[in-house]
Computed example of a mutant assay.
Amino acid sequence: MSSPGLRERKKQKTRWAIQEHAVRLFVQQGYDATTIEQIAEAAEISPSTFFRYFKTKEDVVIQDRYDELMAEKIRQAPADQPPLEVIRRAFVDGFQAITEDEMDQALQRAKLQLSVPALRMRALDNLQDSIRYLAVPLAERLGRPADDFRCQAFVGACVGAMINALLAWANDGGDGKAALQLIDQALDVVAKGP
């Protein structure tokens, strides 16, 4: 996969800058008390520009770059690697690829998703999209159709295990090393059972 061009990199940088300002405001003054106008002002953009990057206020918390990062890791995995190891490495390597600042922001976003009912519901809606998205490169590897049910079910089981690991991580304060251990343990349960 080729790296994004300058224009796309600028758009990505703007997107994540908006998100960074939004999360900071949500933490400082509460999700419901923060307006899109306040986020736009903090990010030095117009409200209409906000909506070019995020359709809703919920999306600014829910959306991230991690699905793309993990999908690329799935595509790059060695051809002889079994599916569970492909998914495990994609999750672990993807998690290790994020910076400490991104890790802190991911923790804040996770806490918001746990504490704000509208975000919890939106996160659940987004979860199925993520599962379908990540199942596509796995299906490609296995020579199956992009919408293969078995690949979606397998990725869904792995994502479900990882969600439990990340919830435990968020509830325990967000130590990055603990997150990797929890993800590994959760995927081990998928492989071997409880």
Rank of each mutant, 00 (worst) to 15 (best):
D184Y: 07
Q152V: 12
M1F: 02
M103G: 08
R52V: 04
A17I: 02
I87S: 00
M70I: 08
R88F: 09
L167S: 05
L142G: 08
A153P: 04
R88M: 05
R144S: 05
D32C: 01
G176I: 02
Y53R: 06
I39N: 06
R65V: 01
Q19H: 08
R9M: 10
N126T: 04
T35I: 07
D32Q: 08
L114S: 07
M1N: 06
R7T: 08
A22M: 14
K73I: 02
A118I: 06
L6I: 13
R24C: 04
L114T: 00
M162I: 11
R24T: 13
I131Q: 02
A33H: 15
G174N: 12
V92F: 09
V60F: 03
K10H: 12
E72Q: 13
G94L: 05
K57Q: 00
D125F: 11
D125C: 07
A43L: 13
P82E: 12
Q19L: 05
D101T: 12
S130K: 09
A43E: 10
F51R: 15
I62W: 04
G143Y: 03
D93G: 01
V23R: 03
R122T: 11
A170D: 09
Q105P: 04
D129T: 10
V116A: 07
S2W: 05
E8L: 09
Q185P: 02
E72S: 14
I36S: 01
Q96K: 08
E68R: 12
D147Q: 03
T56R: 14
T14K: 15
K11Q: 05
R88I: 06
E140W: 08
Y53D: 01
K13P: 01
V189K: 09
L138R: 00
G193L: 07
